[in-house]
Design a protein around this nucleic acid. Structure first.
Lengths: 235, 235
DNA sequence: TGCGCATCAATACGCTTGTTTGAAACCGGG
DNA sequence: CCCGGTTTCAAACAAGCGTATTGATGCGCA
């Protein structure tokens, strides 16, 4: 059994074979999915040998797990949703900041390669068996942060079901732009996806949601009937 | 060259091999995707021989195309989005009806098999080469219907960009419940997906969007500044 | 100078994939 | 009854897949 390199390369600035493999795997996996990706394409993109995957990671699944963990750490470090808007007073401003970071996280085409978030987005579409509890709890933390922001806007009259659904609906709007990127461009080729456009869409989503949530809050506090309350409650 | 059966079976009520193949293919393709599906699983589920696909359709891709066309026709017949809410006076009520039909189309678990919409939803995620202009224009018609409803709520001051984005955001909320069904159940196992819950979520989405759009309309008509208007405009 | 460790090239194995083939079975009309 | 077209069948095919193995080659370090 060989001693496995931990991955960090201190002395030299050029990445090790192991690091190149993770980067190449992340790209290929994020583009073609786990099944669609082939180890031969990955090692070729990494400039490594076919046996390198077996040597460094054991098999394809373990390499995918490593790429997923890297993507999760990288994305949360760059776009810390769990603490988004914490410095702001009004829950409305917190929502604006959260949504803005959410859209940038999903779609910002920065200088760095954008495969990490695409890889995570694939897991949001169909979770793979290697999606362990660590990453899942990380996602959950980000989710609950938005729940609390919504609670601040919706007020104490809201129940957990309404908070869950309104959180899902906010997240879904941003995710739609990523997930359906291709068909959107097919139907509307003139659609822009640069950073300014993203921030604009984020501002629009936040503004409409704030107005919608305040509208709901008013109905709640006036005790008016909510047509969905009996229907969408759990159990 | 053999004479190909057209598929309709008039005298007998039991479906032909060709029909069984399309149904089985639709199920398998909708669950596993085009690449993930194997012709062996399809023919086994259809109770047919491995060579039946080659005989009736030529190859796997043509069978997929047939299943997709069937799914498109079937779904639009059952949930006619292009004319949703046409009998209603207020654009708000039209939106409520459209969103309700949209969520039912996406997620209703009726007696009939639900693979057609799942198959179409996969095409919305990553359009395949066989997605021809017929289906694409059908999607476009459904899309523009919602654009016009939003125009009715948002008023004449809205430009096409805002209409496009608000339409996308409405559709994305329903799509999110379908696309991220698995991860939602992983994070919130108590989430309900029955018909009542769907109609409830649809009512919630419609209500918040109406309030949000009216809020925007007010800003537009009062000439207030919209933070996204310069940013998200095309070109 | 040796001894692990990392990488390489090449090859092979077992398996699954979509596709093809030729023959058997079916079936209505002479 | 038999016959030609239609449909179905078991079997095989070639290609690509992940994985494993082999031996050789540097490399750094005690």
């Amino acid at each position: 059994m060989a001693r496995i390199n931990t991955g960090s390369n201190i002395v030299s600035d050029e990445p090790s074979t192991r690091e190149r493999l993770i980067a190449a795997a992340g790209e290929v996996f994020s583009q073609r999915g786990y099944d669609g990706a082939t180890v031969r394409e990955i090692v070729q993109k990494a400039g490594a040998n076919l046996a390198a995957i077996n040597y460094h990671f054991g098999d394809k699944a373990s390499l995918y797990r490593e790429a997923l963990i890297y993507a999760h750490r990288e994305t949360n470090a760059r776009y810390p949703l769990a603490t988004a808007g914490e410095g702001l007073e009004l829950p409305e401003d917190q929502l604006r900041e959260y949504v803005r970071m959410w859209l940038l996280r999903l779609l910002e085409d920065s200088s760095r390669p954008m495969w990490p978030m695409r890889l995570l987005a694939r897991e949001l579409l169909e979770p793979s068996p290697v999606l362990d509890s660590t990453i899942l709890s990380g996602i959950s933390v980000n989710f609950r942060r938005l729940v609390e922001i919504c609670r601040g806007i919706l007020g104490p009259s809201a129940n957990e079901d309404e908070l869950t659904h309104c959180t899902l609906c906010i997240l879904a709007q941003g995710l739609g732009y990523l997930n359906h990127h291709q068909i959107i461009l097919k139907l509307m080729p003139q659609m822009k996806y640069d950073r300014d456009a993203l921030v604009g869409v984020a501002a629009y989503i936040a503004e409409t949601q704030i107005a919608g949530l305040k509208h709901i809050r008013g109905k709640l506090e006036r005790g008016e009937s909510l047509p969905w309350r009996e229907q969408m409650s759990r159990r």
